[in-house]
Design a binder for these strands. Sequence first.
DNA 1: GAGCACCTTCTTGTACACAAGTTTGTGTGC
DNA 2: GCACACAAACTTGTGTACAAGAAGGTGCTC
Lengths: 242, 242
Amino acid sequence: MIELSRTDSGNASRSATRAANLAERIYGQLKQDIFDFRLLPGDRFTETEVAERMGVSRTPVREALFRLQRESYVEVLYRNGWRVRPFNFEYFEDLYDVRTILECAAVRRLCDREKMPAQLEDLKRIWLVPESARLEDMNTLSALDERFHEMLVEAAGNSEMALIHHDITEKIRIIRRLDFTKPPRVDATYVEHGMVLKAILERRPEPAQMMLKAHIEESRREVRKITLHMLHSARQDAQGRE
Amino acid sequence: MIELSRTDSGNASRSATRAANLAERIYGQLKQDIFDFRLLPGDRFTETEVAERMGVSRTPVREALFRLQRESYVEVLYRNGWRVRPFNFEYFEDLYDVRTILECAAVRRLCDREKMPAQLEDLKRIWLVPESARLEDMNTLSALDERFHEMLVEAAGNSEMALIHHDITEKIRIIRRLDFTKPPRVDATYVEHGMVLKAILERRPEPAQMMLKAHIEESRREVRKITLHMLHSARQDAQGRE
DNA sequence: GAGCACCTTCTTGTACACAAGTTTGTGTGC
DNA sequence: GCACACAAACTTGTGTACAAGAAGGTGCTC
């Protein structure tokens, strides 16, 4: 497995299940439930419900829910339960825009540096490989694609920017999951990432930004095709898996 | 009083004291305590302490503290109390950078629109006035300056970008407060804001961005001068006021 | 049958009690 | 005087009880 762990600088917004803290565990599980469509946008639920399902009291559940609320995954209805925030396509469009802005700015900063940071070496090793060495597993590739963009921003050296970008990436992830039925643009992704990297290494900010923009625009186009019907199918699938 | 309330789109991260929710009230009060240096960076305190001072139980206090933690104003020390996050100048430098990036992007988008949004009219009424009509009260001006930048971003029409920018503005506010001893650059601010506005209205993105960048750079320069000594004085002042 | 008042039930909001673990002070042995 | 063990005092983490209020069903009136 290729290891590309995020430099854990930020306030523990890591997923997974950490033993120490019940609230943190619940937080991670709930978020995963949302990503995996076991909890679908618009679904309503109560604190007690979650507490019983997870086998803990309401206290840590509430703590987890408040965090998810702040990150706008769920919302509380005053004394009337909670709801997974319904899909709002404008919201995702906006997030894509901000993401593009941040990544382009990061690329520009990278081109301005005299010495390229070490992270770029890692990216080269992954994306600038001969066609025969390209990976094919979709899940791995999807994760690597996400990391490519995150690492570009991290490499620029502004950790607040990286944190914000990371949050955005996570928020977008849920809608990218819906796109999994399509044949992935594996070759295109390799080519495009490779070109962006090369342009950065050659310190040509304009083309690098252009290509990056086009590349993000492509995945945004896919997202635009996502309809409420796909959401419905996802619900069916998720229930089938249970 | 000039009214320029933020379009309340986001998740209630408003300050002030709202009656409905104890936790929200505590949240606002704690944040204000931090901004007013009644709680100084590095100060340690406990949940019980805050609960008693505010006359409520620990539950809403904890909820408020977790929110402030997520927004990186405070941090919890495992079973060992809480602490106001110590000053980290790199942190503020990074925030200034992201702020510049977002505002420049907003300006570019504004110049691309065929019809200018209504918010710009409000800004014109405030900043494009004859010298005789300029305000002088520092507190008002400081608030208006903050709103100028926020409204630029809001006018660009991307509400996620506006939310992120708003959070950043709030985080920077605490350090700008330290700068209050200096004579404010009242005239310069009027001139610079005016020039940025005019450039936008004339749809000249490059000069608009340049001037905005220089303007932000100026306030960043002030912030750079802030030393730990000023923090110390602020503590003295705050204690004197109590 | 339609509309309205009421009441039950369920929800989150808040307070409080206890558990788990850290820090700090105290006393003892040397 | 110093080092170490121990205990007491706190601190946050978690569970639980109760309060305030919303929603929806039920029965009454017309």
